[in-house]
Design a protein around this nucleic acid. Structure first.
Lengths: 319, 319
DNA sequence: TGGCTTCCGGTCATTTCCTGGCCGCAATCG
DNA sequence: CGATTGCGGCCAGGAAATGACCGGAAGCCA
């Protein structure tokens, strides 16, 4: 019953946009009798989406949060907002959520009407490259293309610039996209070489889906992340930063927020700990709080602080 | 037909997770004959969701992007990722999208099963407070609550600390949430005062929905943004930053990305322009690039640079 | 080229269930 | 107390969904 299904979706959509709807109005909009509307509401409830009803003079229906996420019916604006949000999250704005975001993004992008997709691509430049991002700027479109390949089990072609600089053309079955350190890696079965390979996404160019599907192979060892770690020579150097600061912990927390932990060490002093790839970041924090501090570790941070401080003072010196 | 509708949703869900599905498998999962499956696919097409079918030995069905966004059927992970992404976007990670993101977020949050909502709340602290955020930390939960009030046309109560510091309790009909400058404002009809009022969200505390609905009133002048602008005395002071830097434009672009514009002024020099609320940000850029520079404007930036530079050097001096 | 797989859509008999109308009932508000 | 609004049982007519069967077409492979 195409009619019924469509009507149910419209009903869901209505219930999702406004919070309350009087039954009469819903029945009106859906062009059914109020008896049928009641039955539709029942059907939604049977599907597990709790529709709350209140009686009385200002009664109405309301969709509540239930055990499962109902199908999200989005208008253009919302769809774009979601895509944009996922893209910034995928770009590393919320650490730990890069992979999940990319997967969700691939799904959304794939379903997004072309006109909306264009709107999002037009904002391409806005995907601020990680803000002092450790790595090179990453093309969000490429990332989603690859994610779509993994999701859809579809073969891909791309050009790859190896570490040594030579460029090769590849034809692979993409399996997993993994974010390690600050970099994205694709784990794939190389069709020409007949073996598993890992590729750094920032070294791939023009990834395209060929449209040919494949049956996923068993991943050696079962876990792509451990497999990747074992393959990747260049382990990201991370710095464990620890600095004593003579300022109340409160003030510091307001500045660094999530990006570090602040322990109170005294009434007006605290220790800041961060784990970063790039020392610029703690340097900036220190430059901002304008309070006396002592670097505990790592030693390189002292150098970085000195360089930044000198660079700043040199800039304002009359030249 | 609860059965049919539910099946259509399941079909949509299946088509959204993997990219290709052989017809037989779909029919199997949905426990219908393959003829019925074909009819279901047709129904989806009639609803405007283009389902692509390919024949031949590895044929199958595939949901394509169409004219309208299909109902998104999300699993837990995806729903959380979307909520997280929207929250960071609402917090200002993508300028210009704050309001849209908040609206979409309100919708998602409202439908999110409690267990997922808890997961997101647990990440509350991660909404890094704007990264040196110009304003005070904003409670994302409060923001969503207010947005839900606007969306659902539901009255709200909250405590409000006026500029002068006195705290009052308010009872309002929330109409619009607007992000102006770096601040959020609620435009609402104050029930006790019987007039329109604007409230700064960061001055509201414990906003709660009362559950009572209201009919939206006509907004004076029609446009909430112009209305708000006319009411708000405190225009956010923005700094127009301009700095000459002796480094290739390329290098700078990689650092500042979207957050500023870089003009080439010579082979190895360029001008950086930014428009910011908070001078810490350009200071950090300057400290990072480690290249000679000259501040053109604003004058306050010179002071800020000096303060930061001195603070940094003082910190590493043996004390 | 032939064979295999897979999707396509027409037809038909059967069964399901959707719909609207009618009713008495219950909850809520003023 | 009365008005409003949702709730759900019952009924009858009719629409539609389903499964089975079919010949056909398109793509892939040897």
């Amino acid at each position: 019953m195409a009619n019924t299904s469509a009507r149910m979706l419209r009903l869901l959509s209505l219930l999702q946009t406004h919070r309350y709807w009087p039954g009469g109005e819903l029945a009106d909009r859906l062009e059914v009798s109020s008896r049928t509307l009641r039955r539709d509401v029942d059907r939604l409830r049977e599907l597990g989406y709790p529709v709350d009803a209140s009686r009385g003079v200002a009664g109405g229906y309301q969709l509540q949060a239930g055990a499962a996420m109902p199908p999200l019916l989005l208008d253009d604006e919302e769809a774009v907002a979601i895509a944009i949000g996922l893209r910034t999250a995928a770009a590393g704005a919320v650490s730990g959520f890069e992979e999940t975001s990319v997967r969700a993004l691939a799904k959304v992008i794939q379903l997004l009407p072309p006109r909306l997709r264009r709107r999002i691509d037009a904002l391409q430049a806005m995907t601020s490259p990680g803000v002092f991002g450790g790595g090179p700027t990453l093309d969000a479109t490429a990332l989603t293309t690859i994610a779509m390949g993994c999701r859809g089990e579809e073969r891909m072609r791309f050009a790859y610039t190896a570490r040594e600089g030579e460029e090769t053309r590849r034809h692979v079955e993409p399996h997993r996209l993994v974010s390690l350190g600050r970099r994205w890696y694709l784990m794939a079965w190389d069709l020409e070489r007949g073996d598993w390979r890992s590729f750094r996404v920032d070294r791939m160019s023009e990834p395209t889906l060929t449209g040919a599907r494949f049956r996923p192979r068993d991943i050696p060892g079962g876990d792509p992340v451990t497999w990747l770690r074992s393959r990747i020579a260049s382990v990201q150097t991370r710095h464990e930063v620890s600095v004593l600061i003579e300022a109340p912990a409160e003030r510091l927390r307001a500045t660094v927020g999530y990006w570090g932990t602040v322990e109170e060490t005294g009434e007006a002093s605290c220790r800041l700990r961060m784990s970063v790839d790039d020392l610029h970041w703690p340097v900036m924090v220190l430059g901002t709080i304008a309070a006396p501090f002592t670097v505990e570790s790592p030693p390189q941070l002292t150098d970085a602080v000195r360089r930044a401080g000198e660079a700043l003072l040199r800039g304002i010196a009359p030249s």
